[in-house]
């Protein structure tokens, strides 16, 4: 078992991970954007409470988040039962559950990156757009969102990388089932625990490293490209 190439179970774990992290990001991005806009541009009662709630996954032990998800979204839980009855969707012990866990854990990072980039936009640009006849919705879509695009990309890629690495909440919520919920970190953990799994663990580790570095480089490159386009107008 010293083959340098990925073995089928490892390829399964890779594809599952990409799907889980990809869906987690795509599904949570709109919510993250609206939350970031709300936090950056509006004052309301309970704002600090909401802020704390958004950041909770950063400070809570991931196992606690996973257990909370289990209690809430399992078919016996309040939300899980309703989802199953109304839409026939079950999140228990499948990749959708893993995506939910990854999205929740990555959410604070994504919101933070987007919020910072929205806060960096001169609010007077938005006011100028209002005086030109644009309502709040059009201002958001044509001014705020395009100007926040670099932060949005950074946030999404950061979140994607974080989602790929999710372990604690995932293993607690949807367990570690090869082919169903065993993402890269879970597969790496299992391989490291298994006698004779060292080579597999090594390959999975290198793979994880490669994906993470690629995501970071991509994020830097795209942010710089966008910034240059805005500054030099090419």
């Amino acid at each position: 078992m010293t083959a340098p190439f990925l073995q089928p179970p490892e390829i399964d774990a890779l594809l599952l991970s990409l799907r889980v992290a990809g869906v987690a990001m795509l599904a949570s991005l709109p919510v993250a954007i609206l939350t970031a806009q709300l936090m950056a541009r509006h004052d309301f009662r309970g704002k600090s409470f909401l802020d704390g709630l958004i950041h909770a996954p950063l400070v809570l032990p991931p196992v606690v988040v996973g257990y909370l998800l289990l209690v809430t979204f399992a078919p016996t839980g309040v939300v899980g039962g309703w989802l199953l009855e109304t839409f026939g969707i079950s999140l228990a012990f499948n990749w959708k559950g893993a995506a939910l866990a990854a999205a929740v854990m990555a959410f604070p990072l994504v919101v933070r990156a987007i919020r910072l980039s929205i806060e960096a936009i001169d609010p007077r640009l938005e006011r100028a757009a209002r005086t030109l006849g644009a309502g709040p919705g059009r201002v958001f879509l044509t001014i705020t969102l395009p100007l926040a695009l670099p932060g949005l990309l950074t946030g999404a890629l950061l979140g994607f990388a974080r989602a790929l690495g999710e372990f604690g909440a995932t293993v607690t919520f949807v367990s570690n089932i090869p082919g169903y919920t065993q993402t890269l970190p879970l597969a790496l953990y299992s391989a490291a625990e298994r006698p004779g799994g060292e080579a597999s663990a090594l390959r999975l580790m290198l793979l994880s490293l490669a994906i993470a570095i690629l995501a970071l480089i991509l994020s830097e490159w795209s942010a710089r490209r966008l910034k240059r386009r805005m500054e030099h107008g090419s």
Binding site: D122, R124, R127, T131, L132
Partner: peptide
């Protein structure tokens, strides 16, 4: 009336052109 309903033209001190548009 909100600003967008007033039909006023406002020229700001520093122009405030949208930097991402031509």
């Amino acid at each position: 009336l909100p600003p967008e309903k007033r039909r006023i033209g406002y020229v700001f001190q520093d122009g405030l052109l949208f930097p991402h548009m031509t």
